[in-house]
Design a binder for these strands. Structure first.
Lengths: 185, 185
DNA sequence: GTCTATACTCCGATAGAC
DNA sequence: GTCTATCGGAGTATAGAC
């Protein structure tokens, strides 16, 4: 039946709704019964698919990582040093434009010393980007590439926080251009 | 009795322990029974003093704001424009050195769309600092003072996140100096 | 101590795909 | 006619606010 292509299956509905709720109200503060209700499925189905609530979170996080990887890859695969820098600066915008809820959830988990903190540490996926950026600053003969990399990463962490607050991401383009302008010669 | 001066009263014990637990494990994830146990008081005392769990959080937040206000004031009262900038850059360090747990809790709450988000919005206390910084950049003839203010605030938000992760705050001095050096002529 | 919410279990019934 | 996905609801155990 053609509707297969248009109707989300129930497992995906659960994942979608759970991500939405977890990222907005927090994992602990979201009950499985609410997820079931909003996803219009029986509560038991959640446990059939994901074993337990934590399993649901795990699958959400794994899916999220997979979805942001292509954005990271565009930086990793860039050859020109200056373009590496400019692309890194656009990363927060692009990731949040596409995967806002996931990224919000990820920050949420990171900001708490929960048992999940180590399981779902997304920092490791950013290491290649960090190294690439460091190399770019070296290539461009910055006086202290390591410090400049740290500096820019710190700035982009702050930018990410701001972007998550925004309803209209376009409002952020001015500051993103401003940041980029500081690295253009 | 002299011990009054040395022994914390029970209400303050509760506040201290609750702040510690809330900031490390999250508000939702901390039970009143655990707070009582760690503070070595009966659980009922929490409700006698604070009505309910939310009342406890409210008092913690109000106390925290009062404690950070002096740090903000040192910026507000600074006359020299360049010193305003340098002092603002040191704010995250100073606040976290003194009130790490409170500031961590505050970020935690901010990162969730909880009902508390609006009640405990600390942004409003930073507005005078923002305006002061904006004025400083104007005085120093920056091309775009408003954007530069936004830029620096974004950077400092990112710095704050990093500081919260650190066990040894001294490790951050290098990057703080580096940020400051960009604004020294 | 009380009462409610919540994670999780179990199972009989149903409907559709093959 | 069987298999798979799902429903719906009864039920348990436990934790947590008060």
């Amino acid at each position: 039946l053609i509707t297969h292509f248009f109707t989300m299956n129930k497992k995906d509905s659960i994942l979608k709704i759970a991500l939405e709720l977890f990222s907005n109200q927090g994992y602990e503060n979201t009950s499985t019964s609410l997820i079931a209700k909003k996803a219009a499925v029986s509560e038991g189905l959640i446990f059939r698919h994901f074993t337990n609530k934590e399993g649901l979170l795990t699958e959400i996080m794994n899916e999220g990582i997979i979805k942001i990887q292509p954005f990271l890859d565009t930086v990793i695969n860039e050859k020109d040093a200056e373009k590496v820098i400019l692309k890194v600066i656009e990363l927060p915008y692009k990731i949040i434009l596409s995967e806002k809820e996931f990224w919000k959830l990820q920050i949420n988990i990171k900001s708490q010393n929960s048992k999940f903190k180590k399981d779902f540490d997304t920092n490791k996926y950013l290491i290649p980007v960090y190294l690439k950026l460091n190399q770019a600053f070296s290539d461009l003969k910055f006086e202290n590439p390591e410090l400049e990399t740290q500096y820019l990463f710190t700035l982009l962490n702050g930018l990410t926080l701001s972007l998550i607050e925004l309803e209209n991401l376009n409002d952020a383009k001015v500051i993103i251009n401003y940041i980029q302008s500081k690295y253009k010669k």
